[in-house]
């Protein structure tokens, strides 16, 4: 039956929100859908600035007009016994056919399978009013978006997070997972860069806002725990392995305090590294190892 094919095609298109269809195609489908389900457009024209509404209204209105014209012109030429239905019904039929044709021609993977016609009693939405206002309300709510894919099939599919971040009532009571708020970082002007190309103020700002505390590149590499950077600096560029920052800490202090045993072990294996150096707190690097 035409209506079943139409409903199946609509359901298919609703399940294919991933399709990136051109606007003209979407509008065409929209117009046919509205004509098929609601008939000719009788709504007032929305304001031009309500872009989306405006565009849809225009598509609905104009497609309806053209279908009406086609129908009336064909009615004058062919008069068959079947054409006893109201004009509105013919519009609706024409729109359903047009919709199905578009979906078929579009090759968006729709295949009509009569066995998949939803049993009207299977979904809450299709149940007639029960007289229980509470239940009717729920049904009305649930009916808005009936999903015709079976639970088992959905469970078997790989999980794809919803593309558009919609409010998800399914986890409503959950507290949400809070993590540390990211502090707003000043766009730290690099001091070297400021010295080369920046203003005096920029240099002043970079120097006062960027307390490197006398750390060398090797200190930083040790702090961040990058063995490869540490090795590169030590072995290729022969940097000072016992450099002290403003707190009297060596790169080894940083590696130990920050908990990078691989980096610490590497530094400790180097004969040039003085492991007995104490920082201003009087601690050797090894004393910081957990």
């Amino acid at each position: 039956m035409l209506k079943d094919r139409f409903n199946s095609a609509v359901a298919h298109m609703n399940s294919r929100k991933d399709l990136k269809l051109p606007n003209s195609t979407k509008l065409g489908l929209y117009a046919d859908y509205k004509l098929a389900t609601e008939g000719l457009c009788t709504q007032p024209r929305p304001s031009l600035l309500e872009f989306e509404k405006s565009a849809k209204w225009k598509a609905w209105k104009e497609t309806g007009d053209s279908y009406s014209q086609e129908l009336s012109s064909s009615a004058t030429t062919t008069t068959t016994s079947e054409e006893t239905d109201t004009a509105e019904f013919n519009i609706s039929t024409k729109a359903m056919v047009a919709y199905i044709q578009k979906v078929e021609e579009g090759q968006w993977g729709w295949v009509f399978d009569p066995s998949t016609i939803a049993d009207p009693s299977s979904t809450l939405a299709a149940v007639l009013p029960t007289g229980d206002s509470d239940l009717d309300e729920l049904q009305a709510y649930l009916g808005i978006d009936k999903d015709e894919i079976s639970a088992e099939e959905l469970l078997a599919r790989p999980y794809v997070p919803h593309e558009n971040t919609q409010f998800d009532p399914s986890t409503m009571t959950a507290a949400g997972i809070s993590t540390m708020a990211t502090p707003v970082e000043e766009e730290g002007e690099d001091a070297l860069e400021a010295a080369k190309t920046g203003s005096v103020e920029a240099l002043q700002k970079a120097l006062s806002a960027n307390p490197d505390l006398g750390m060398t590149m090797l200190h930083w590499a040790c702090d961040r725990g990058s063995s490869r950077k540490v090795k590169l600096l030590v072995e290729t560029y022969n940097v000072d392995v016992n450099a002290l920052d403003d707190e009297g800490s060596t790169p080894l202090h940083y590696a130990c305090l920050s908990g990078w045993p691989e980096v610490a072990t590497y530094l400790q294996s180097l004969p040039a590294v003085d492991q007995s150096i104490k920082d201003h707190s009087g601690m050797t690097a090894a004393e910081y190892l957990d």
Binding site: N23, K26, Y30, F51, E52, A55
Partner: peptide
Amino acid sequence: LQQMALGAGGAAGAAAVGNG
């Protein structure tokens, strides 16, 4: 204007087309 509208409409527009 229509193009702008549908572009800006994004997900909502796409969702609305087809089932209203």
